[in-house]
């Protein structure tokens, strides 16, 4: 008996709307992040991540409202990422109903932000989100949605984030993202071995075998986006398959215990 492995559904949101195409039958408004988050909860998702990709102050305000409305109806954890660049931003996100905040470009620019947030909110609130691109035998950190190159080695940066007070590492392979060919297992394994905080694998996962491989490589959780939004598969179906493979997952229906 121990922690179950998590499946996390991630939604890109801009100006209050889900950006990537979502094809769900039976949803009155498939672009509404609140409705989608509820739908994923009902399907057995263990967590929801909203990634705010609006670039404006106005968009961020709208995002906080989305978080507030979601938190009124969602009874699983909610993480907000994107655009959080100060302790004040983080406080607003949490106060609006997010349980964790994921920070990416802002902590590369100012690593102390991790510790400041951890001290105020606790390490369990602070997720270091790292976008990594393979370069030879290593991975380089990129920021600003992958547009900006940095001098940081992704594995070393993950370790530093954990040392500074991040309670979880969300590691995204830029090379695999959207490709549906599986997570970058070497990257996942390297990060999982480098830190003792939980690691979430992201980028490229599309089926139960991909998820199982990422967990085997050392991840504690797997993040999915497009394959869920497109209706290629569902969290419930993935969990059934994972359970059949012997992976400990939270049953999607309470009676299944």
């Amino acid at each position: 008996m121990s922690l179950t492995r998590r499946i996390i559904a991630c939604l890109d949101v801009a100006a209050g709307r889900v950006v990537k195409g979502v094809r769900f039958e039976g949803l009155r408004d498939a672009g509404d992040p609140v409705a989608l988050a509820e739908r994923y909860e009902a399907e057995g998702a263990d967590e929801i991540v909203f990634l705010d990709i609006s670039a404006t102050v106005e968009g961020r305000r709208t995002m906080l409202d989305v978080v507030r409305r979601t938190a009124e109806r969602l009874f699983i954890p909610l993480t907000l990422g994107g655009g959080i660049a100060s302790v004040d931003h983080a406080a607003q996100a949490l106060r609006s109903g997010a349980d964790k905040i994921a920070m990416n470009s802002a902590i590369v620019a100012r690593p102390e932000l991790i510790g400041e947030c951890a001290e105020r909110f606790g390490v369990q609130c602070v997720v270091a989100s790292i976008d990594a691109r393979r370069e030879g035998d290593a991975w380089r950190v990129r920021t600003r949605g992958g547009r900006t190159e940095t001098s940081l080695d992704a594995v070393a940066w993950a370790r530093r984030c954990a040392d500074l007070g991040a309670g979880e590492i969300l590691i995204t392979s830029i090379d695999r993202d959207g490709g549906r060919v599986g997570y970058d297992l070497e990257l996942t394994a390297a990060v999982a071995a480098a830190v003792t905080v939980p690691v979430v694998a992201s980028g490229g996962g599309a089926d139960a075998a991909h998820i199982a491989a990422a967990l085997e490589a050392g991840a504690d959780a797997a993040l999915l986006a497009g394959v869920l939004h497109d209706g290629v598969t569902t969290v419930a179906a993935l969990k059934r398959e994972l359970a059949a493979m012997g992976v400990a997952v939270r049953p999607t229906i309470a009676e299944a215990l």
């Binding site: 008996m1 121990s2 922690l3 998590r6 263990d46 979880e168 504690d220 959780a221 049953p251 215990l257």
Partner: peptide
Amino acid sequence: RVPQMGWNLVAPEPAESLAARPFHAY
């Protein structure tokens, strides 16, 4: 792995009146 992050099984003693059976909690 610390912090513990995720869903774990809670096993109540018979005396616990708030939960009658084991359940997964966040």
